[in-house]
Amino acid sequence: MLRTLRENRPLQGFLLILPTLVFMVGLLIIPLMLTLVVSFGRRSPDGGVIFTFSLENYLRLLGYERNCPSGEAVCFNPLYLQILWRSITLAFNTTVLVIVLAYPLAYYIARAPARWRTALLFMVLVPMWTNFVIRVYAWMMILRKEGVINLALGWVAHQLGIPFQPLEMLYTPGAVLVGMVYEFLPFMILPIYTSLEKIDLSMYEAAADLGANPWRTFLRVTLPLSMPGVVAGTILVFVPVMGTFVVSDLLGGRQVVLVGNLIQRQFLDARDAPFGSAASLVLMVMTLIVTYFYTRKFGFGEEIIAA
């Protein structure tokens, strides 16, 4: 028995991937298939699923609605399209902001003396030891009407003798953006740092030697050579931001509904699993399309993922 194993290379390989295979098939492929099947079904009056083949859920996402207030049989309601669009633009804005914030920090860490780098990277990672949801709650404490920012501003206004109206910051799209940027910043810092750190110092010297001042060296050498890190970071940030619902739920309230919130509510509040499944799949396909075009243009940043 053991002997067979020792001599059978394909079997060895199969055994090595078996645990992951079981995991992926059991917890990804099969549930995904179920989701697909359910998404073509219909909600039963008691919140169960009637299995049929109907495109109704998908049409509803695209804006075709039955039982309209106007009394017509079918009408156009852009609500869900708006949610999808909002999710994409938010993911896009978050990613751009995260790049803008993460790059200088990653650059700073990469160029810091070697003995400081570990400590600085450690500080980037420390917040991640706290639970994700708790960190979002912390932002509520900061942003709400009686929160840290308003208290501080109020105190300053009071000292200056200016009348002060607390700012409405919580439950706005801005609050969701801030929360998202904060949560996903480390996922951009790390890959950019890795790619910057790999650039040989002689590259900077060669550029300077050929007449490039520091700014032009950055634009022509540093930035292009660190693009794999930016690309990898973009994928690591854009994809999860498209799907999360905790940040928008807590910091956006009912004001900022994203696809993630829509899906969550369909399953938990509305008990409409078929519609929730359809929304999940649309989210997945949308993310895949964006990622596909992005990676076709810039690659996967595989140098970084491999490193």
Partner: peptide, 10 residues
Amino acid sequence: NTVFQNYALF
């Protein structure tokens, strides 16, 4: 101008 030991090509 310098020719580097490891060439330092971009």
